[in-house]
Amino acid sequence: MDHKMSRSPWVIHYDGSSCNGCDIEVLASLTPLFDAERFGVVNTGNPKHADIFLVTGSVNAQNLPVVRQIYNQMLEPKCVVACGICACSGGVFRDAYNVIGGVDRAIPVDVYAPGCAIRPETVIDAIVEACGILDQKETVMRAGGDPLTVGGAATWDGGVELGEDGFVAAAGAGAGVDAGTADGAPAGKPAAPAAAKEAE
């Protein structure tokens, strides 16, 4: 039987350290004018129910464990969409002292959706892109493979680790400025979707 998860992907949204601009646009994309629900998208508050994780805003020392926890609670196949430029790379706040960088400093990201603020059309576009990755993961899993070999997780560098005191342990990462650049992860570039396409 050809049943696909991507026919009705449930999404969960978490606001990293976004300015709200992207959050309200993510919500707006679900309301009747843009109507992401026509693709079967349902917004849920429970990580265990969700297939796609929409993260807005960059990560900092305090919300990094929260983002990781939500991600870990989600079941495979799952997909992460970084909504907005702050979630992709840190955006205008990249140089602020309490910003570690994009969401890929915490968890592997499958789709990078830019914009400040992100437009609802881009959100829908990103969700549809993520559906493709969900399907691939599902195919790989049915064949007994590892879902982590598909999408952003395949090329992820591991992000940053928090020290015991809650501060960022990696050298230079605490400054926020160096976190994105020093690791050599081109956070702003849509490297992961490209990799996903190659895998196809």
Binding site: A61, Q62, N98, G166, V168, G174
Partner: peptide, 12 residues
């Protein structure tokens, strides 16, 4: 109140 990645950042 704030758990920031650097101690007392505004005093730097």
């Amino acid at each position: 109140f704030y758990q920031v990645s650097t101690a007392e950042p505004m005093s730097v």
